[in-house]
Write a protein that binds this DNA or RNA. Structure first.
Lengths: 157, 157
DNA sequence: GTATCTGCAAATCTTTTGCTCATCA
DNA sequence: TGATGAGCAAAAGATTTGCAGATAC
């Protein structure tokens, strides 16, 4: 199966046009670039990250347009909002159920899936609490690269 | 076993004094009240919440002192910081491994534990990624009270 | 007595909003 | 052409910081 992340440029364009037509939105070049940028991105960028990434390609793009477009895509179910340990808002284009690995040194957020977990029966505490609509695991630690960096500086923790 | 949350006022005072002595900190009445307030609290308040809760008891307490004290307690391992879907910083005094139930209507965060989950073998993706030091599950949905409220207004979602 | 802490004010940082002109359908 | 969107500037909200006087040890 082809996930959204694997789509090439023209596939995203088509998808974007269909989305806009369905939702009664205008297809502006800014929105298209923002969508392209985030959908192809394997990390989970902030609005600032997206803005930086597009500055070369669109020098006049403003940060608040990025914020507005991302909020728009969120409202239309294309993206999810995510608060990382840095207190800033990250955007997650992955629509399939998944979990996160967060590096506390570099702040990068990786996705992962976990079949054995999905097979687990929900805990009784959750059923008693109310109605759960989304379950997400966040694993925090150090990614391989940051471990490596610490190792070479002979600073293990 | 007696958890920190069950401690009475004088037990917290003793614990606070020991903590300060160990860390070379001063035992100020502000810090003590802030610690009392958050340790006995079963929800996960923001700095603002703590400040509001203490206004009656300490009218001159300023919000930035609350921020400073909470940051201090975090550095000394007494509290954990938590970013909820409201984008604000919540503080979590629960030191035992646990997970969170977040209501997307009222924003309240409840703790729960899940023995079957803790028994699970970590996924291979996590081992490949690096070194995981903390695992936390976040279940988002509607708590019983908010479900009830929606129900009585004949608005189900 | 002295280093640390508090409270105040102001700064900082992220995100949102009002407005005007431009642009897409 | 007429509504919607972009860019600008400024506001809003949360958190942090510099400083002067107060306080714990």
């Amino acid at each position: 199966m082809k996930t959204r992340r694997d789509r090439n440029r023209s596939e995203v364009v088509q998808w974007f046009r269909a989305l806009c037509r369905r939702a009664g939105l205008r297809t502006t070049p800014q929105r298209l670039e923002i969508l392209q940028s985030i959908v192809r991105c394997s990390s989970h960028p902030t609005a600032e990250d997206v803005h930086q990434a597009l500055r070369a390609r669109m020098p006049t793009l403003s940060l608040d347009t990025v914020y507005r477009a991302l909020a728009l895509f969120e409202r239309h179910g294309v993206l999810a909002r995510l608060w990382g340990p840095d207190g800033r808002c990250h955007f997650d284009p992955n629509q399939e159920p998944h979990h996160h690995l967060v590096c506390r040194d570099c702040g990068r957020i990786e996705d992962f899936t976990w079949a054995a977990f999905e097979a687990l029966r929900p805990p009784s505490a959750a059923r008693r609490w109310g109605r759960v609509s989304r379950v997400r695991i966040e694993m925090t630690g150090l990614c391989a690269q940051c471990l490596e960096k610490r190792g070479t500086r002979a600073r293990r923790r």
